[in-house]
């Protein structure tokens, strides 16, 4: 897997064209001027999972203005359900990761399969959001 493949995935899956760099260091990090000397370069953006590339919630929030495809807008009730581990019904997408939006704000990563959406927002962060809603 090359950084260019990651850029292509983001463009293909979310129609998002980005001007930053993708730098591999265990995961793919989105940054400006990566160098090995640093402990981290920018923010962790995309992970290489068994089932394919998975964008992080922080990364999707960051690129929210560029996302034109596989965006799923949810209501408060739907978001609360997702954050407690439930799935919500949805249709018309290709299987894979989606960007969850609430009140025109990207919340993070979700997964679409078999006409169902589930949350991929990390559990701890999800609990924090539930309390803040």
């Amino acid at each position: 897997m090359q950084s260019s493949d990651v850029r292509e995935y983001v463009k293909e899956r979310f129609s998002a064209e980005l001007d930053g760099e993708f730098y591999y260091n265990g995961d793919y990090w989105y940054c400006r001027e990566p160098e090995e000397r640093y402990e981290t370069n920018g923010i962790r953006a995309v992970r290489d999972m068994d089932i394919g590339l998975k964008p992080t919630s922080y990364f999707l929030q960051l690129i929210q203005d560029e996302i034109e495809k596989n965006r799923v807008d949810v209501s408060r009730e739907e978001l609360e359900a997702l954050l407690t581990g439930d799935m919500i019904e949805y249709s018309g997408l290709e299987k894979g990761y989606v960007a969850l939006f609430f009140e025109d704000r990207c919340i993070g990563c979700g997964f679409y399969m078999d006409e169902l959406i589930s949350s991929r927002v990390p559990e701890g962060r999800g609990k924090e959001l539930s309390k803040a809603l």
Binding site: R32, Y38, T40, G42, Y58, L62
Partner: peptide, 30 residues
């Protein structure tokens, strides 16, 4: 480019968390 340096291992955690949360992807941490 912003290079954010911190001497304390423990305090690096809060630095990282805030970089990620704020989307400060121009920051490299040292």
């Amino acid at each position: 480019l912003v290079v954010a340096n911190e001497v304390s291992d423990q305090r690096m955690k809060s630095l990282h968390a805030n970089i990620y949360r704020t989307g400060a992807y121009s920051v490299n941490a040292l």
